[in-house]
């Protein structure tokens, strides 16, 4: 479904991503874990098109998206839920969701209201708050709204950038449970996380990103048991 081939991305003269290749199959949850500054967010923003790779290709099914503008990439079916949620905080919950469907608003206005209903059933804590200003929601609710807004684009692949950041453990669990529900509904998900344990528990496969290079990849279940991963990303977390 999503295929990244030998991507190199720079910030000015600093190379952040070095020859990254990965793939995400339809219906999978794939996670990329790694420390701060490893290049996780850059990888997602390169896929979403807000950063342009210097070389390499990104394919969504058969479409090459790496040369497209952000708007066209959204239209093609890649939707990024950005780090720190970034909801439109002075707009209402409902407006946030509607704006998520911006690229298809002109064409299927009718289905959009149904889709909002769907999102609301997925996130019961947003129910009844349609007209509340998004900035007044709690962190967890804002994260749910951000995911809901991302889903409103009807993406083929949903990209999530650190959905757990700054949230209480219970809320983190709730968010990752929702990812499982989404998977059951057939959504393909690529999620970047520092919270390796939470991510590996729901993911099918995982990549480990270290200083711009994928150092390790495999099944999420195996990684949870792998001693190297445990000491670097799971155990280290406990002592941190």
């Amino acid at each position: 479904m999503l295929k990244v081939v030998n991507i190199n991305t720079y910030y000015g003269r600093i190379q952040v991503l070095k020859n990254i290749s990965l793939n995400v199959e339809k219906g999978e949850i794939v996670t990329i874990i790694g420390a701060n500054g490893a290049g996780k967010s850059t990888l997602l923003s390169t896929i979403a098109g807000t950063n342009k790779p210097k070389s390499g290709q990104i394919y969504l099914s058969t479409t090459q998206t790496s040369c497209l503008s952000v708007e066209k990439i959204v239209r093609a079916g890649i939707s990024l839920v950005p780090e720190h949620r970034q909801v439109f905080d002075s707009l209402s919950v409902l407006d946030n969701l509607r704006l998520g469907a911006y690229h298809r608003y002109g064409n299927d206005k009718k289905t959009i209201e149904d889709d909002i209903e769907n999102i609301m059933s997925l996130f019961p804590s947003l129910k009844g708050r349609e007209n509340q200003i998004a900035g007044t929601l709690s962190g967890g609710e804002q994260q749910m709204l951000a995911i809901g807004r991302g889903l409103m684009a009807n993406p083929k692949v949903l990209l999530l950038d650190e959905p757990s950041v700054g949230l209480a453990p219970l809320v983190v669990k709730e968010i990752f449970d929702i990812l499982l529900t989404l998977k059951k509904r057939g959504t393909t998900i690529l999620v970047v996380e520092q919270n390796a344990k939470a991510a590996l528990q729901v993911a099918d496969r995982a990549y480990i990103l270290e200083r711009g290079v994928i150092s390790f990849s495999g099944k999420a279940k195996d990684m949870l048991k792998d001693t190297r991963v445990q000491s670097a990303y799971l155990g280290a977390k406990l002592h941190a």
Binding site: Q86, D89, H103
Partner: peptide
């Protein structure tokens, strides 16, 4: 209006607006 809201979204958070496909 929806278009006005998209404009406001651009004002509130240009980056997120771009991610919604708002040019």
């Amino acid at each position: 209006t929806y278009f006005g809201k998209a404009l406001r979204a651009c004002v509130v958070n240009k980056y997120a607006a771009q991610l919604m496909g708002i040019s």
